[in-house]
Amino acid sequence: MNSNPNSEFQIPNSTLELLDFTLRLADDAVIMGHRLGEWCGHGPVLEQDIALTNTALDHLGRARSLYQYAADQVNRLPVDEKKKLFTSVAFQNLVSSGASVDEDDLACLRDCWDFRNVLLVEQPNNDWAYTIARSFFYDAFNYFFFTELVKSKNETLSSIAEKSLKEVTYHLRWSSEWVVRLGDGTDESHARILTAINDLWMYTGELFTMNETDKVMFQQGIAPDLDQIKTSWLASVRSVFSEATLTIPTGTWMQHGGKEGTHSEHLGYILADMQFMQRAYPEMEW
């Protein structure tokens, strides 16, 4: 896209908020897919290795649709505005060259502070219990979130939500069943899932905080009210925990920052892996 310094074109704020929102959903999906992909070849039993890879593929597929949509939004902006979006030198160089941006540029040329995923999804796999607890919290959120997002006034997001809902319905069933199996399995599995739930609980609050982007998206009828989602999510967690003989952690202090680009230490390592090829061998077709 050619820049036009005299352009009268003004970006409505909502455009940037839509981009921020789209990227957050994409980043959540790509990081979760990355984490689940780390299990491939290392699962506790072959059938579950396959199930995890399947889920990783679903997340990755959703990430791609969302990044493509985000790239489309970015490419509509004048160069000067594009440059203001993300800080990394790699991204700045790309935009300055006049090249258009694609899904891989968004995934691989932004640094941590421009990633918008929630802290929950970047937490490490640790063991099967942590992986299950993390998936369960995220899957339950996705299920209620995408159920609402189907009704979005934004057609692209609505159609992505519709496709995703079929997938996340299955993901939630799978991770709920595992929470029950581990909670109501052996003493060891009960202890392990309990530890995982207690440790990850403080990362669940961020799923429901309404930041500026969320408020604008809600006002415009693009995204749902996260407060309502929280109520459904909590009811679902309670019900699964009760079957699993587990209780909701008592801690109420919640971590925040992912949605605004302040991440845990873990994200840097994920990006170092994920972005390595694009950084070492830039601007090539693969």
């Binding site: 396959i50 890879t53 990755l60 994920i270």
Partner: peptide, 21 residues
């Protein structure tokens, strides 16, 4: 898988390894 050079390649690689499983 974690280092595939593009998202498309990552997806194809994941699917391929899943076939092997």
């Amino acid at each position: 898988i974690t280092r595939a050079p593009s998202l498309r390649r990552k997806a194809v690689l994941l699917a391929k390894i899943q076939d092997e499983a």
